[in-house]
Design a protein around this nucleic acid. Structure first.
Lengths: 174, 174
DNA sequence: CCACCCATGTAACTAGTTACATGATTTC
DNA sequence: GAAATCATGTAACTAGTTACATGGGTGG
């Protein structure tokens, strides 16, 4: 159950409330592992049952706000999980299914959709490059920063390859 | 529900039994949209209820073997679904979560895992390139072949970019 | 005082995975 | 006659999505 481990990591970086985690997931980790607030609250509750995390009323915040932090068992679990191997994910993109459908039943005008996506990928690429410039352009980076940069670069090359593919696809389909 | 539409496409290409679909999903569509036989049988049953497909006892095959084919309503549904836009998928790779965990709690020896994956990606790339050479190296391809080639090329460039990324990651982590 | 954001949750559903089960036919 | 493959399914579970619900605090 990877979301739990994503949350553990995020909580180690900074103890937070469920709401804050949900907000932070919109950026950083959320770029490659999206989760809704409902899911996050559920997993936090489960992890508290398993004693991987503990929570207490946040003093500075509003009424009802709960702050979570990772317990030793949670850290151990994270270490354990992270050192096991796992399979790379598939592409699993509906667009490919739609292309196959197009091939099977005749032209469906997918060019529009591909063009729309190409633009979207260009925007994302720009966002990632802005982050890169802002956070990782210094000559000496800490180990942590280098690793984050690595993840960002995976995103950048994915977007670049999608843009190139889109161009190819538009040429082929026109 | 994309699996249903993947099955409709596959059945349009060739009417088949659930078993045959499951086998075919191991190749072709399965490269980017994996499904188990349990899921396939369930979705076929649902589509029959909705009258998107019909089935009958296969004459040539063994006892109990059911052949499925797409009805007009199913084809209409597929056309409709395929012409709607959809969002590109995330990366959602556990490895990135593990890298973040490594950054948060200290070195976990992920180099091994990255090296293992790099080899895996190289093997996949080779498989894809073999298919490309076998099926798409003729100068004149049909529209259908061109589209299939396009999908394959997406796989090729994904694997290439993963291999390049792995090299970078190994250099950074060492 | 109204809109917006902070903050937490429940409920119902859909999609995907894992484990188990059964029997027929072909091949060695 | 045993093993492998063909062929279909049920059941239980896990993960993720969508819809609904509630109330407090802040800024205009």
């Amino acid at each position: 159950m990877s979301l739990q481990h994503a949350l553990l990591t995020s909580l180690l970086e900074k103890p937070s409330s469920g709401y804050e985690l949900a907000r932070r997931f919109d950026k950083s980790i959320g770029y490659f592992w999206h989760a809704t607030h409902q899911q996050i609250y559920r997993e936090l509750a489960r992890m508290e049952e398993q004693a991987w995390v503990k929570s207490y009323d946040a003093e500075g915040g509003r009424a009802g706000k709960r702050q979570f932090e990772v317990l030793a068992a949670g850290k151990e679990e994270l270490r354990n999980w992270a050192s096991q191997s796992s399979e790379p994910s598939e592409l699993r993109d509906e667009l490919f299914l739609k292309l196959r459908a197009d091939a099977a039943i005749g032209s469906l005008g997918l060019e529009q959709e591909i063009a729309r996506r190409m633009q979207l990928h260009q925007e994302r690429l720009q966002t990632y490059k802005d982050i890169e410039l802002r956070d990782f352009s210094k000559p000496k980076l800490s180990r942590e920063a280098k690793i984050r940069h690595l993840i960002l670069k995976a995103g950048i090359s994915l977007e670049e390859s999608r843009i190139a593919w889109s161009k190819d696809a538009l040429t082929t389909l026109k």
